[in-house]
Design a protein around this nucleic acid. Structure first.
Length: 594
RNA sequence: GGUGGCAUAGCUCAGCUGGAUAGAGCACCUGCCUUCUAAGCAGGCGGUCCUAGGUUCGAAUCCUAGUGCCAUCACCA
């Protein structure tokens, strides 16, 4: 039973015996640092049940608790706040328990399965900073859900069909001269992306020419020959034209190759991939079923709609008049397919930017109307855009921050800082490289994940990402320092695996650290409930702040009292494992040295 | 125009279900490396929590209205 539960019962008893009143609940909060105490009972909230002066009530309850609850060492009342001081041995006992728990903070896996979708790129462009946020968020949320006891399947849906793909294909056919990733040394996604750009360049040139020849601008945009040819290509693709399909397969393979490299560097992975080209037909069946069930209605021109005006939304199209699928059609099909594939799945998380809030609201509603009981368990993990100081990233204006380039840049920055400090001159080039990547990526990932997903991020490439203060490297550094201490402790042969003597007197900083450590499990739960890696990031930061303060104020290995020394080594070790575990949830690694 | 999100220090962000004197980092100014890694620590400067009402013993937090920024309202994805 947690201390809070013990106190809750005791406070209720106190109120019952002192004032003959029944408290529905007791409000607790951590005592603010400016006051003496560890945990605070808010007396104000009792006033509804107990009439009287809050200070006097607090005093009476405090005396009762001091008498009846073993863990309470002292109390004081400030205004309507009853501050309780807990005994040191309560903290030490609690700490000893935590030290024995190898999976502290983690809930054992259950059969309650959730599918988490993220990344989901188009196959005509390389990944950029926006995708990085998406990937990091999706990956971290998946890990956090696992830690909170869910069974998780990571997945993505790859948008591998449509006119945009044909544009790259056409440009490659025309201007490519048979170039391949091998012949050029370019990553496959970059190569294909270049042809997408080339298409647009050629397209624009044709439009300009047509306008110069007296064609109306809007007409030119629609009738530029190269665009018409791309559309023809799409029709051929849908008809299964062999040459087109094989070109499509070849170029897509290049792109997937490139993506794989980026994902690997970024440290994310997937359990199952879905391809739009394989699922887009599926939704159509259910459109028909929706029609039968009268969930949908058909217009005279053949288009199918879902009327959501009763829910305060619009009428939404689910099938075009020519019978082809729209975005919504495919998403309906994909969702259903996933539940078929993973029969134990009881919920899905869609990691998609907040510009699609409306789409997902509608999608979930439609699935519910179609009668799927799991539709209530769908969650759109909506996140804000990553903006540059110049505004939104636009590929056409060349203001996109490329994912691969950014990772290299971060690694280089980490390298130059590290070299300047020169602490690791005995490392081999290879070891150094690995470390620099770990630090550079740690900085990037932490920078993005510490922000509440809902909020947009302003990314300034010039100022880039900090390595000091509230940053990934700051936290990694603390971890490395602790490892250094542990190495020395082991080298000097200190055995530090024994239980800590509960009669030890705690230093203020030690007590604060234990308090912070105790919060780890509830932080993971809260982060899972809110789908917010930021909560984990900020928790680890607070823990590290607390540790550094402790580290600076007390000597660990230099402590004369052996019991204290052992305790401090254990405490440091526990902090390190929580940093490591917390960062792992964020997909960030920690170094032995830096 | 309808709908949704956001608004906290010069900048970037925390602030859990309403609680005490609103907290960090960066930047700027002071100190601290003959002691476990100074990518660190301690301190200082800096706030109309967008505005106006309301609910409450108590509001950055909840409600209403307004202002600003962003997104969305396509037979695009």
């Amino acid at each position: 039973m947690s201390i809070q539960n013990i106190l809750e019962i005791a406070v209720k008893e106190a109120v019952s015996s002192l004032f003959s009143a029944q408290l529905p609940n007791v409000e607790f909060q951590p005592t603010r640092k400016d006051f003496e105490g560890d945990i605070t009972v808010v007396v104000f909230s009792m006033l509804r049940v107990v009439k009287g002066n809050p200070v006097q009530i607090g005093q009476d309850v405090g005396e009762y608790l001091l008498r009846e609850v073993e863990e309470v060492a002292a109390f004081n009342v400030v205004k309507g706040f009853l501050n309780l001081v807990l005994k040191d041995d309560f903290y030490i006992t609690s700490f000893n328990k935590i030290m024995k728990n190898d999976s502290f903070g983690f809930v054992a896996a259950s059969n309650d399965a959730v599918l988490v979708e993220y990344s989901s790129p188009n196959t005509n462009k390389p990944l950029h900073l926006g995708h990085i946020r998406n990937n990091l968020l999706g990956y971290a949320v998946a890990e956090i859900l696992k830690a909170a006891g869910k069974k998780v399947y990571k997945t993505q849906i790859i948008n591998d069909r449509g006119i945009h793909i044909c544009k790259s294909m056409l440009a490659w056919q025309r201007f490519g001269n048979g170039e391949t990733p091998d012949s050029t040394g370019l990553k496959g996604d970059k190569l294909v992306g270049n042809y997408y750009v080339e298409f647009n360049t050629a397209y624009k040139k044709e439009i300009d020419q047509m306008i110069a020849d007296g064609v109306d601008a809007k007409v030119a945009e629609k009738e530029a020959p190269i665009l018409l040819e791309a559309q023809k290509m799409l029709q051929k693709w849908e008809a299964g034209d062999e040459a087109i399909v094989s070109l499509w397969k070849k170029m897509n393979a290049w792109v997937y190759d490139g993506f794989d490299t980026t994902y690997k560097n970024l440290g994310v992975d997937f359990d199952k991939l879905y391809y739009e080209s394989q699922t887009y037909l599926l939704g159509k069946e259910f459109v028909q079923e929706g029609l039968n069930k009268k969930v949908f209605e058909q217009d005279p021109d053949g288009s199918v709609w879902c009327d959501l005006t009763d829910e305060g939304l619009d009428r939404k199209i689910v099938l075009r008049s020519d019978g082809t699928a729209v975005y919504m059609t495919q998403d309906i099909g994909t969702a259903i397919q996933r539940v078929k594939d993973f029969s134990d799945v009881n919920g899905m998380v869609y990691t998609v930017g907040n510009e699609q809030d409306y789409h997902f609201k509608v999608l979930f509603l439609i699935l519910k109307k179609l009668g799927f009981n799991w539709a209530d368990q769908l969650h759109h993990l909506s996140y804000g855009m990553v903006d540059l100081p110049s505004g939104k990233m636009k590929s056409r204006e060349g203001t996109v921050v490329d994912a691969d380039d950014l990772m290299v840049e971060m690694t280089n920055t980490a390298a130059s800082i590290s070299e300047e400090l020169g602490k690791l001159d005995d490392y081999t080039q290879e070891e150094k490289q690995g470390l620099h990547k770990m630090i550079g990526l740690g900085a990037l990932k932490y920078y993005i994940l510490k922000v509440d997903p809902k909020k947009r991020i302003l990314f300034n490439p010039e100022e880039s990402v900090d390595f000091q203060g509230n940053t990934g490297p700051f936290i990694q550094y603390t971890y490395a320092r602790i490892q250094s201490i542990l190495r020395k402790a082991n080298d000097t042969g200190v055995v530090w695996s024994t239980d800590v003597d509960a009669s030890l007197e705690l230093h203020l900083k030690e007590k604060e650290l234990i308090k912070q450590i105790q919060l780890f499990p509830s932080t993971i739960q809260l982060a899972a409930e809110n789908y917010s890696p930021a909560l984990v990031a900020n928790y680890v930061y607070d823990l590290v702040k607390e540790f550094n303060s402790f580290y600076q104020q007390v000597s660990i290995l230099g402590e004369d009292n052996f019991e204290k020394k052992v305790f401090r080594i254990q405490l440091s070790n526990r902090v390190a494992t929580i940093i490591q575990a917390g960062f792992k949830l964020l997909g960030i690694e920690v170094p032995e040295r830096m």
